[in-house]
Simulated assay, not measured.
Amino acid sequence: MRIAFYGSSLLSSYWNGAATYYRGMLSALHRHGYHATFYEPDAFDRQQHRDIAPPDWAEVRVYPATEAALRDVMAEAARADVVVKASGVGVFDDALLQGVMAAARPGAIRIFWDVDAPATLAELAAAPDHLLRRMLPDLDLVLTYGGGPPVVEAYEGFGARRCLPVYNALDPMTHHPVPPEPRFVADLSFLGNRLPDREARVEEFFLRPAALLPDHRFLIGGNGWGDKARPANVRSIGHVYTHEHNAFNTSPLAVLNIARDSMATTGFSPATRVFEAAGAGACLITDAWVGLELFLDEGTEVLVARDGAEVAAQLAELTPERARRIGEAARVRILSEHTYARRGMQVDALLREVAARKRAA
């Protein structure tokens, strides 16, 4: 089957946390015989910060962020068997959603793929006339990369025919153990862009432990932190390219995961970083969120903290030997249950089921 996938960016993870997810899903589907074309706008300086070359498992069409170019790429949806509009493209989102679904041929599978369900659902709740809310009954599927039962119930309550979570996962060919690098050495590292609904949690779960442990070394990566006030033992290194993530995860004693406010409240929303860190065999400390046990067991495969003081206590007691045991246990669990190969099987079976039902109808 041919897939026309309209998203933020496949080629760049710059201000684009969904890149790893897109890559894992489309490469997995390629192995099941799907031929995907990914349409991404030339916007937000992402093309100047590419971290992969155009892959052999998907065609990538980069289009100018203009209305004329938009019309051209929307028309190409007519050639696909599966038409996907992802959330958070950032350029002409409403026009894309309406345009590609209108262009889709009769019989094509129409999907809205939400990579930030809590944010999208908040928009739908606040706007009864929201375009997506009006279009949900006409779409075959809503897929989300997190959220679990609360998100499924919310989407179906807004009129979605069917909503299913397809969680983040690990591509072991991309994220795996590597030797540590001196520039990433620290006692605790955190990687994430500075966002309004994450900043207060970063202050609590990362900067507060740094203040409590002045003799420990802390490292923060991601865009936007350069001018953030921080203790003297915290070093900021800016954007970390995808090919550097393995070393970023293997070099410190432990890696910290901090959910955004909305993700923590919704639960069942493991960040991409969770699987990247586990794939590298890193010892992960995470803030607490509902549904974590579906992915990792507290105490043996991941350390969990309810506030910054608990992060500091976990880190102060952590030995290199225990960190290695936790990281290896996490790696074994994720490789067994949460790879993109498994997610690809899930989506392949789902698409074949929907296609067969549409043919029969």
Rank of each mutant, 00 (worst) to 15 (best):
R2S: 11
F5I: 13
Y6L: 09
S9K: 11
Y14V: 03
N16M: 02
Y22C: 08
M25A: 08
L26S: 10
L29F: 09
L29R: 04
R31W: 04
G33L: 11
G33P: 08
H35E: 14
P41H: 04
D42S: 10
A43L: 11
D45C: 10
I52F: 10
A53E: 14
A53P: 05
P54I: 06
T66H: 05
E67D: 12
L70H: 01
L70V: 11
D72S: 11
V73F: 06
A78Y: 09
R79F: 10
R79I: 10
V82D: 01
V83S: 00
G88D: 15
V89F: 03
V91P: 06
D94T: 13
A95V: 12
P106E: 11
G107T: 02
I109G: 13
D114N: 15
V115A: 13
V115R: 08
D116Q: 08
A119W: 13
L124E: 07
A126H: 04
P128R: 03
D129K: 04
L131A: 05
L132Q: 02
R133P: 07
R134G: 08
P137T: 13
D138T: 11
L143A: 02
G146T: 03
G148A: 09
P150T: 02
P150E: 05
V152D: 07
A154M: 09
Y155P: 08
Y155V: 07
G157R: 00
G159F: 02
G159K: 04
A160G: 04
C163G: 03
C163P: 07
L164D: 04
V166W: 03
T174R: 06
P180V: 00
E181M: 06
E181R: 15
F184K: 09
A186V: 02
A186D: 02
L188Q: 09
L191G: 11
N193Y: 03
N193F: 01
N193S: 12
R194L: 01
R198G: 04
R198E: 04
E199A: 11
A200L: 11
F206H: 05
P209D: 05
A210C: 07
L212N: 06
L213R: 14
H216E: 10
L219N: 09
L219A: 02
I220H: 11
I220C: 15
G221H: 03
G222T: 01
G224S: 06
A229R: 15
P231C: 00
V234A: 14
R235Y: 00
S236R: 10
E244C: 01
F248A: 06
F248K: 02
N249H: 14
T250M: 11
N257Q: 12
N257A: 12
R260M: 00
P270C: 06
A271F: 00
T272V: 12
F275V: 02
A277P: 08
A280R: 07
D287T: 07
A288W: 10
E293Y: 03
E293T: 06
E293I: 04
F295V: 00
E298S: 15
G299Y: 05
T300H: 02
V302M: 07
V304I: 05
V304T: 05
A305T: 01
D307T: 09
A313S: 15
E317M: 12
T319A: 07
E321D: 14
R324H: 11
R324I: 12
R325I: 08
G327T: 04
R331T: 03
V332Y: 13
E337C: 13
Y340H: 03
A341V: 08
G344S: 05
M345E: 14
E353F: 10
A355Y: 04
A356H: 13
R359H: 13
R359W: 05
A360V: 01
A361T: 14
